[in-house]
Design a protein around this nucleic acid. Structure first.
Ligand SMILES: [Zn+2]
Ligand SMILES: [Zn+2]
Ligand SMILES: [Zn+2]
Ligand SMILES: [Zn+2]
Lengths: 139, 139
DNA sequence: ATCGCATACGTTATAAGGTTACGCAATCTG
DNA sequence: CAGATTGCGTAACCTTATAACGTATGCGAT
């Protein structure tokens, strides 16, 4: 589980920077309320302060929302990277998350949506299972 | 596990049947609390009555949960059908949902998870965009 | 400078979604 | 019959997310 050593992205407001840093320093996904708790020492007091920051961070692609967990993670890719069809693998036991980018997946999703008559604006792909560390030894 | 003439799966308890019917009769996804409201006339009073029924229905594959909507839909495939890697296309404007099954997608997800060191137990794939009816006419 | 607009901020209250805890009843199983 | 399992009902509670309202700040156009 390593992430970039950072360098906060430029152009963030104080609250946005605080929320982004909290996520970047966390080992895994955090709920909005957990973020809030971790930032009370910095003066944050209300859920909306966190949700508003998250909204902007997600818009900019600096943070992703994990729908199946109601939680958020800092993006593990450089800010410049392409982000179509990001998938997340989530360990059901230890909760670690890996952000995966895959062009073939992106194409397949676009094709599927198209065949069903839909445009594809954004996609949620979350894979649940066990990570290598949590998997029982093969037998 | 067969169905009666009116499409109700057999072997459901009263609450499960009520919840399933509510979803099957709805035009789109329903939240648990909306289901509850629609079933108050049938005697349901508490969220847990709905959540417990939903849990069983999801286990049996008769109902799917849409994580990005916090809502549920009746499965649109026969009860016998295979259900690995079901994807949902969701119109952002009118809310209609199409349930898509695709073996190539299933394989790609399995490969992706495997390469990242994860087993793949179940997947959430939700595609957001506009359906044909809601898309602005081209040209 | 100052008006209008846009963006961010802070606070309170409330909506929406989901679970824990407890106990009773029916249905198997030995 | 005892014990286990499953479903049911109620109340209380917790988590997640948004609405509503007002303030502050930057910035370009008049
Ligand atoms: Zn990312
Ligand atoms: Zn793990
Ligand atoms: Zn289905
Ligand atoms: Zn539509």
């Amino acid at each position: 589980m390593s992430r970039h050593a950072h360098g906060q992205p430029a152009g963030l407001t104080r609250n946005q920077a605080l929320v982004h840093r909290a996520l970047a320093e966390a080992e895994g996904p955090l709920s909005a309320y957990t973020i809030l708790d971790r930032l009370r020492g910095e003066g944050l007091r209300a859920p909306l302060q966190v949700y508003r920051a998250l909204e902007k961070l997600v818009e900019r692609g600096l943070v992703h929302r994990l729908e199946s967990l109601n939680a958020f993670v800092a993006c593990s890719h450089p800010e410049t990277a392409v982000h179509d069809a990001t998938a997340f693998a989530i360990c059901d036991k230890c909760g670690t998350v890996s952000e995966l980018a895959d062009a073939r997946l992106a194409r397949r999703l676009a094709t599927l949506a198209g065949e069903a008559g839909y445009t594809l604006d954004r996609s949620t792909v979350e894979l649940r299972g066990l990570c290598r560390a949590c998997r029982p030894a093969a037998g």
